[in-house]
């Protein structure tokens, strides 16, 4: 077993001694695919910046009950619609005289929760549907994917509103309807990625080794399809945030006085001529978070395009 493979070489000398490893070599470990992705991501300033913005906003939102400068629920009829830069209210106050900064911080919790949760749920459900459809193929694929195509007939905003309207207002129902909006989109991406992977020779090689379909999907397919689906899902978070805010804006999501960016935008709409800058703040928050998620997702995508 120790013979080198070139059995009939040109009576060649061995490689220079420098290339030969030590007698008892330690096994080399490669950083692997995700190691490469991570390193490449760290070299992308835009992705890093976007990631830091997201982390900061998430941290602030989580810690908000302990760090808000004022009570976000207590208003004051005398101090309504203070402008930005007010000595007491740094970012002004809303139409009921509540501190905007504190409310924006607390609102981040619900807004982020309502933006991210549907995407996570849709990621789980949609991936499962898409991977099964893509791997099994044939008539099952046809049935699943044609069913999913039906959902594409409706614009996602309309679909979300219609579902929410049918289910009734409330956070839970808003999340359910948003999940329903994203499942078809993620399933379709999952299906197309899986169909591609399914045609690779290594999947055939795994079939030839006698493995069951479940084992092949678990060991050979999942690792290769979840990445691209995940990237796509992160790009949906911004859409989800905007839709969730939109539902709240329409009164189909969060109910007052609970602070949520979309709902705040709605209630401040009356003040748009009085104090436009303050009224625009929740929109700015939504914009900042969604663009950060999008930029991060773009960075992740290009980082994952390294040679596999």
């Amino acid at each position: 077993m120790s013979a080198p493979v070139q059995t009939a070489s040109l009576t060649a000398p061995a490689l220079p001694a420098a290339a030969a490893p030590a007698p008892a070599p330690a096994f080399e470990r490669s950083p692997g695919y995700w190691g490469h992705v991570g390193r490449k991501l760290l070299r992308d300033p835009v992705a890093i910046g976007a990631g830091l913005v997201i982390l900061t906003i998430v941290a602030v939102a989580i810690l908000s009950p302990w760090i808000t400068p004022m009570d976000p629920y207590r208003g004051s009829m005398l101090r309504r619609l203070r402008p930005i830069g007010d000595p007491t209210y740094i970012l002004g106050s809303d139409e009921l005289g509540r501190d905007m900064l504190s409310r924006l911080m607390v609102a981040g919790r619900l807004s982020l929760f309502m933006g991210v949760t549907p995407v996570i749920l849709a990621f789980l459900i949609g991936s499962a549907i898409g991977i099964v459809a893509g791997y099994v193929g044939g008539w099952l694929n046809t049935i699943l994917m044609r069913t999913i195509d039906v959902f594409f007939a409706f614009p996602s905003v309309l679909l979300a509103i219609a579902l929410s309207g049918a289910l009734g207002a409330g956070i839970f129902n808003a999340i359910v309807s948003l999940t329903c909006v994203f499942v078809p989109q993620i399933a379709r991406v999952a299906e197309s990625v899986t169909t591609q992977i399914r045609q690779r020779d290594y999947v055939d090689a795994a079939r030839l080794s006698g493995a069951s379909s479940f084992t092949i999907v678990r060991v050979q397919v999942l690792g290769n399809v979840l990445g691209p689906i995940f990237v796509y899902a992160t790009s949906l978070i911004s859409v989800s945030m905007i839709l969730a805010s939109g539902l709240s804006f329409l009164g189909l999501g969060v109910k007052p006085p609970e602070p949520e960016w979309g709902l705040m935008l709605n209630t401040l709409r009356t003040a748009i001529y009085v104090n436009p800058l303050v009224a625009a703040l929740p929109g700015l928050a939504i914009f900042l978070v969604s663009i950060s998620f999008n930029l991060f997702s773009d960075g992740l995508r290009s980082a994952m395009e390294v040679k596999e």
């Binding site: 070139q6 009939a8 070489s9 040109l10 060649a12």
Partner: peptide
């Protein structure tokens, strides 16, 4: 019978050996 082969593989072009690039595989080097 076995084929007569050139052992080894071409050098890494980012780290070219100082002398002849074929020397590590060459029977006459």
């Amino acid at each position: 019978a076995r084929l007569v082969t050139i052992p080894g593989s071409p050098p890494d072009l980012a780290r070219r050996p100082p002398g002849c690039a074929f020397a590590p595989r060459c029977p006459l080097a």
